[in-house]
Design a protein around this nucleic acid. Structure first.
Lengths: 344, 344
DNA sequence: TGGCTCCGTCGAAACGCTTCGATGCTCTCC
DNA sequence: GGAGAGCATCGAAGCGTTTCGACGGAGCCA
């Protein structure tokens, strides 16, 4: 409840001097600074965020924008949100959530035009994202967790889907697999241009060619039932398959169950790895599933840092970071069955 | 970028008239209102949040405070956060996250004293929570998702742990079980006075007495390994056990695995239900686990509504809501084995 | 027709901070 | 010893709203 002028009075200096002492925006003698700080905590003074924001035209609030659709929520999302809030806080910012159901930039514009947030972080970025257009047109500061087709002039941090997929395929190829199935997300997701799906599909195909092995992509909805169903499709269309790659956390249960139902055991009869999942997902199964784990917290941290840096040093060069997933071997992948046979 | 005085000029009225037209805080003639609104969207005017907050002393921002400790993050937490943000937005508010690692009220005070938030929502409330003391002393508006020992004068919404536990025990008793084990969270959690654990333990014991059946409580850490370990302890200490109740999502995997390892199958050899979990948890297993599911989104919504109502109608009576979990029967509980034998 | 009330509108004073220009002071150098 | 530079500090003008008191005009009743 104490205001800056109370502090000034107690410290015996002017209001502006207090302001300079707090913000360091002009040199202040050590003696004065000490008196000011003493007065501040005598009064347990807290600068008023709104007043500060109004005068300085900087709210020190960041917006986190993640549209939520049918993909739904998993562990990763929460890790992102929490990581982002933490980092923002550490940097002296606050984080506002705008979990808008649609991707329409309208409400986003509202948020930015109200002077509430200094910048926004975009999650779940599409290849061709209307939010990006809008923000760009407004010249409003933002950073992305994810990336789109044209990323010129945009700071972002994203999972390195290309290298992750390539790592995964190489890993399985090295184990001796020659017929892979990649279970990704829904066809609509692909068509909407959702980067993770688009990129991994491209890299999957490409890497297969490089290794000269067979494989196919299967689109799969976000439920256990979908996972279960796709499994049957796979075995029908591609009976020789020996290893499965999945990037669909919500269908994974169905896949694991389905394998068990069909009498396949991991990794003796078939290999399975999950891509771009939270560490915690793979642990949920029995046996646990080898995971190419997405470093959610780190990405969130980097995303926020990118944005804060942009706000505070607009002249810094653009930074675009790709973080590969790290493999956590949980034993659900091994050499294919025929290899065992050969060995015998 | 347009300000209220631009709008006033274009509409040919005074600044205060525009303000009244926007906020409805004084009667304005229909003709004038129309001109004002026309001017507003001609200029695509957005009121400046900081200026408004400063002048009105209401930021229209809510703080969501959830300390995160070893219990870690699950589906429920995210559902809370998202539900809260949605409801806040619908009510014309924004939601700020303060995921502070500690329960120390210091940073909370900072948040409130900066005039940044109009009110806060407390999650993960302890029986005797320092945050509650602090907020009370400040006469700062808040609502809780959860409750503490002394809830006088506090709006809250909480899971009805008592009725949920009692429902669960009754359900199992009705199936014919006479020896139960309740696997709850860690002993430290209990000792720290965490409401959900304290209350369910009390009710468990009480309900056993009412039904005159046997049972014991087992404290269990928040990992699959802990779940696995506790299972062995249970079978040693209570060999006659036929049904397990668990309120520990992170240990649940270990429990389910452990049962399988020991050759018990659900529900033929033993029954299992999980309490106060997200709907999504039970579905993750095979067979799925019968869940007394916590209505996270609804609770979040109610919590936010409680707070907003308190802010806008301070005179309204205090509301304290208990929401029972609803059972989702997934088939992991059935009559105990000896009953089958009897039938044969 | 004069005196009321009531309605719609206006002007100006906050709200608590930042920031710009100005001012005095001390120190240095010819 | 006086001009010049540099440092620490001050006063005041904003920032874009809300809100309070006031005011003019219309409508009513006596």
């Amino acid at each position: 409840m104490a205001t800056i002028s109370d502090v000034a009075r107690v410290a015996g200096v002017s209001v502006s001097t207090v302001s300079y002492a707090i913000n360091g925006s002009r040199p202040i003698s050590e003696a004065t600074r000490l008196r000011v700080f003493a007065a501040m905590d005598a009064l347990s003074y807290q600068p008023h965020a709104m007043a500060r924001g109004l005068a300085s035209k900087r709210s020190r609030i960041l917006g986190l924008h993640f549209p939520m659709e049918d993909r739904g929520l998993g562990f990763t999302e929460l890790e992102f949100v929490v990581g982002a809030a933490d980092t923002a806080f550490a940097g002296g910012y606050h984080l506002i959530l705008s979990p808008l159901m649609s991707e329409q930039p309208r409400e986003l514009l509202q948020l930015t035009q109200q002077g509430l947030v200094d910048g926004v972080i975009l999650m779940e970025v599409l290849q061709d994202d209307p939010r990006v257009e809008a923000l760009r047109a407004l010249r409003f500061p933002f950073a992305m967790i994810g990336r789109c087709a044209d990323n010129r002039g945009i700071d972002y941090v994203d999972t390195d889907f290309e290298s992750t997929m390539s790592d995964a395929v190489c890993y399985l190829a090295a184990l001796g697999h020659t017929s892979l199935a990649y279970i990704t997300q829904s066809h609509q997701t692909f068509d909407s241009g959702y980067g993770p799906v688009v990129r991994t599909c491209a890299t999957f195909t490409q890497t297969l060619l490089q290794h000269d092995i067979a494989g196919a992509i299967y689109f799969c909805g976000a439920s256990a039932a979908d996972g279960n169903a796709i499994l049957r499709t796979i075995f029908e269309e591609q009976p020789a398959v020996t290893a499965l790659l999945a990037m669909n956390d919500r269908a994974l249960v169905g896949i694991v169950q389905g394998l068990d139902d069909l009498g396949y055991s991991l990794p003796a009869d078939i290999s399975l790895v999950t891509l771009v999942s939270s560490m915690r997902i793979g642990e949920l199964f029995r046996p646990p599933v080898t995971t190419f784990a997405v470093p959610s917290s780190e990405m969130a941290r980097l995303g926020v840092e990118l944005l804060i840096d942009r706000l505070e040093n607009p002249a810094h060069p653009i930074r675009q970071l790709l973080i590969p997933c790290t493999m956590v071997d949980q034993g659900s992948a091994a050499a294919p069955a025929h290899m065992h046979v050969v060995r015998v």
